[in-house]
Simulated assay, not measured.
Amino acid sequence: MPIYSQVLGDRFNRLHPMLKRRYKQLEKGPYRGSGVMKKITRGPKWMYPLMFLGTRRKLLFPESGVFIPFTIQHQPLTGDNGEEQVHWERVFYFSGKKRYFNALMSLDSERGIIKDYLGEPSVLYSDLALTVLENGGLHIQSKRQRAVIGDKEIPLPRFLQGVATVVEAFNEERNVFEIQVRVQNPIIGTIFSYEGEFTQDA
């Protein structure tokens, strides 16, 4: 059973049928989709060096723009300890460049959250809480975060955290999945955001 249906429990059945199908696909193998980001924004210019360094870990990037092609893939994996994992790969195709926003997720069944390790190799950990919206959409909110330094994980105070909010829905009129992601810091404001749409690849 996919980790997302496990953490949602009975609430999983309240998801839009196309979202349920999308996440249950992981029982059979990878999910692949492609589409367009209508808008990608980033934080203030002084953060550019940090964003550029993030490209080395497939986490952040300094580019922004509108109508940027992208692909998304969820690959089910098994960790060294036997736990179910899902590798997320999001690739954004800027002019002459490919940028990534990747993560490795697994289930913490005792706390009822998804464990999210961001970057490759990981530099940031976040708890993720999942909620089903009234329209059948999926709302994901990051909670406690830790910096990952080698084999150590250091809790981050709130003023250093990038709090992520993700909303995914299905647009029946356009027959597309819609995605909105915003990462914010309580002092800086928006660090990174994107919104777009995609369809499942054949």
Rank of each mutant, 00 (worst) to 15 (best):
residue 1 M to S: 14
residue 2 P to A: 04
residue 4 Y to E: 14
residue 11 R to L: 01
residue 13 N to G: 06
residue 13 N to A: 12
residue 13 N to P: 01
residue 13 N to V: 00
residue 21 R to C: 03
residue 26 L to A: 13
residue 26 L to K: 14
residue 27 E to D: 15
residue 41 T to P: 04
residue 43 G to K: 11
residue 44 P to Q: 02
residue 49 P to S: 06
residue 50 L to C: 03
residue 51 M to N: 08
residue 57 R to H: 05
residue 63 E to Q: 15
residue 68 I to E: 07
residue 71 T to I: 04
residue 73 Q to F: 04
residue 76 P to K: 08
residue 77 L to V: 01
residue 87 H to K: 14
residue 92 F to R: 03
residue 103 A to G: 08
residue 109 S to Q: 15
residue 111 R to H: 13
residue 112 G to C: 10
residue 124 L to A: 11
residue 129 A to C: 05
residue 134 E to T: 06
residue 139 H to I: 00
residue 141 Q to W: 09
residue 145 Q to Y: 11
residue 145 Q to G: 13
residue 146 R to T: 02
residue 147 A to L: 15
residue 147 A to P: 03
residue 151 D to K: 15
residue 151 D to H: 15
residue 154 I to D: 06
residue 154 I to E: 04
residue 155 P to W: 06
residue 156 L to F: 13
residue 157 P to A: 08
residue 160 L to W: 14
residue 161 Q to N: 12
residue 161 Q to A: 07
residue 168 E to S: 12
residue 169 A to V: 00
residue 176 V to F: 07
residue 178 E to W: 02
residue 185 N to L: 07
residue 190 T to V: 07
residue 191 I to D: 05
residue 192 F to R: 03
residue 193 S to D: 10
residue 195 E to P: 04
residue 200 Q to G: 10
residue 201 D to T: 09
residue 202 A to I: 00
